[in-house]
């Protein structure tokens, strides 16, 4: 019930924003700023341009709002714009969107676990951050949408405008990349 009223409130904001209501769009910005910023930052792989690119995504959404026809979720539509902005920025700086950076392919060791100390837990988190950064931007965006924004493969397919099978394959490849660029827990855990 709460979800339904939330959706209705969001639709009302979208309708008002479509009529040029800045304040209504401002509330949509407030609602989605963290998710968009997170998605853009992690897709870019750094925080340097993230602020500008995330802002650009909202400005583009504002300008293109009349094209949003409410058949999909507003969040999916907005994430698509954000990812496109991030890809445009990466291409502008000469970085490929769907290839791994060759200089970052060295193997990383995961710390052993067992009963995880706070330090080891931090180390692991730091390592997973590094593993994500090593992925190509397209894989990074899928990992973020799936694991951090809690979207399923169907929703991600809608965001990226790709078939569901492609999204699943990318998710598999992303996990494989992460496994292969780390001496993953699978091996290290039993030995420590």
């Amino acid at each position: 019930m709460a979800v339904q009223s939330d959706t209705l409130a969001e639709l009302d904001l979208i309708h008002r924003a479509k009529k040029g209501d800045h304040a209504a769009f401002g509330m949509l910005v407030e609602r989605y700023k963290d998710q968009v910023y997170n998605l853009v930052t992690r897709t870019l792989g750094n925080q340097y341009q993230a602020d500008d690119v995330a802002q650009e995504a909202f400005i583009r959404a504002w300008k293109a709002l009349s094209h949003f026809e409410e058949r999909s979720k507003f969040s999916s539509w907005l994430y698509r714009i954000a990812i496109n902005c991030a890809f445009t920025e990466l291409r502008r700086s000469g970085k490929p969107v769907d290839q791994l950076p060759p200089e970052e392919m060295e193997i990383v060791k995961l710390p052993g676990s067992g009963a995880l100390s706070a330090e080891a837990a931090f180390e692991k988190r730091d390592l997973v951050e590094k593993l994500i950064k090593r992925l190509s931007p397209i894989y990074r965006s899928i990992v973020v949408l799936f694991y951090l924004q809690d979207m399923d493969c169907q929703e991600i397919a809608a965001v990226l405008n790709r078939p569901v099978g492609t999204v699943k394959a990318y998710l598999h490849r992303a996990r494989t990349e992460m496994r292969s660029s780390a001496e993953y827990l699978l091996k290290t855990r039993s030995g420590n």
Binding site: E30, N38, D51
Partner: peptide
């Protein structure tokens, strides 16, 4: 375990003044 580690990653929140900046650009 890999799944749990990925899900436990922090969401990077937008910096202070982000919305204000977007609204001024919109104007």
């Amino acid at each position: 375990e890999l799944d749990d580690l990925l899900r436990a990653l922090p969401n990077l929140g937008a910096p202070e003044g982000f919305s204000k900046s977007v609204l001024s650009k919109m104007a």
